[in-house]
């Protein structure tokens, strides 16, 4: 209980601290440059120039310390060895030759292609179908629900699906193997099956992300102007034709946004792999490899940092695309 008290008092201190900062810094500013007296005009100009910075200062400080500084720092760390000596790009050349790194990069690229594609596809199908029926919103919230579940929780859930019992261990308790056996196939240890285990891990993330894609695409579909649909309908287009030739072309922008958002999630995927295989059996990914190098028996922060920089590099195109989009919006 002491601990919760600690948490609650932190909230109070934090919240009051914030409010006090904003309140008193504003008052202080008004005292220094009073909006009356001989220099009222000049004072008002000065205080209007300074005040916004008072408002953004705490956020800027935290962002700088917790995101900007680490990017720079990690970059420099990636060029040091375990003792902190500068070794240039050695960590990167080592990475290029490391078997595990190549495996991780390959797997990450595979994740990068399959997960966003499948999630967007299923999301689109779900959005298109649920829009047409009465209980659509209930169906949507059930498909959307996995979004609320942690990757760890999802891993446990799917363990009950992928579980394998050997020949003498009684009946299958994993749903997938039970189905496979019921259809006359042979049960498999899905999680250790080289290459294919990657796909089975991806299924978990697709299961989670489809709801996200569906919600956003569904909103976009609703935003399409009725006129174009009606016109196509009157020209005799079928429901499928309307969906693929009229609706989809109008929401390309949203599809791209969904795709890239899931891409970023995929690049950082860690929990699922960590919980299901911990990178064994050829299922390693970059984020888990980095964690490995950071916390193994003899940590190598240099190599860990180099792996992070690779992830950072892969995210950069999305970052640039996002910034240019936001810039267009705000113009």
């Amino acid at each position: 209980m002491d601990q919760l008290l600690f948490a609650v008092s932190t909230i109070i201190v934090g919240v009051f601290g914030c409010v006090a900062y904003f309140y008193f810094s504003n008052i202080l500013l008004d005292r220094i440059y009073p909006a009356s007296g001989p220099n009222a005009g000049a004072n008002i100009n000065k205080s209007t120039a300074i005040r916004p910075w008072l408002f953004v200062l705490p956020a800027l400080l935290v962002l700088t310390m917790y995101l900007v500084y680490p990017v720079v720092s990690t970059f420099f760390l990636s060029m040091r060895d375990t003792r902190g000596a500068f070794i240039g790009v050695d960590n990167y050349t080592w990475l290029a030759g490391d078997e595990k790194f190549r495996e991780s990069l390959g797997n990450n690229l595979l994740w990068l292609v399959i997960v966003p594609a499948a999630s967007t596809f299923f999301g689109l199908v779900a959005a298109g179908l649920t829009d047409r029926i009465k209980w659509g919103s209930i169906a949507q919230s059930l498909i959307f629900m996995p979004m609320a579940i942690s990757f760890v929780g999802a891993s446990v859930i799917w363990k009950f699906i992928y579980d394998y019992r050997g020949e003498n261990q009684g009946e299958q308790i994993g749903l997938l193997n039970a189905i496979v056996e019921a259809m006359g196939g042979t049960a498999q240890t899905w999680i250790t099956l080289p290459f294919w285990n990657n796909i089975f891990l991806m299924v978990i993330l697709i299961w989670i992300q489809t709801g996200f894609a569906m919600v956003i695409l569904s909103a976009a579909l609703k935003g399409i102007s009725e006129e174009t649909i009606e016109a196509a309908y009157l020209d005799g287009a079928t429901a499928l034709q309307i969906f693929f030739k009229i609706k989809i072309p109008q929401i390309w922008g949203t599809i791209a946004v969904v795709w890239t958002t899931i891409t970023v999630t995929v690049l950082k995927v860690f929990d699922i792999v960590f919980a299901m295989t911990n990178g064994q059996w050829g299922s390693q990914v970059l984020a888990n490899l980095m964690y490995d190098w950071m916390f193994r028996g003899s940590p190598d922060f240099g190599r860990g940092s180099a792996i992070v920089m690779v992830i950072m590099l892969l995210v950069t195109p999305v970052m640039i695309w996002n910034i240019s989009n936001a810039h267009k919006e705000n113009r």
């Binding site: 900007v68 720092s73 970023v264 950082k268 964690y291 950071m294 860990g304 992070v308 992830i311 950072m312």
Partner: peptide, 16 residues
């Protein structure tokens, strides 16, 4: 800030 939206958290671990 839009750029920082997608920065991988892993970046922050070792320095922080």
């Amino acid at each position: 800030i839009v750029g920082l939206l997608v920065v991988p958290l892993q970046v922050a671990f070792i320095p922080l």
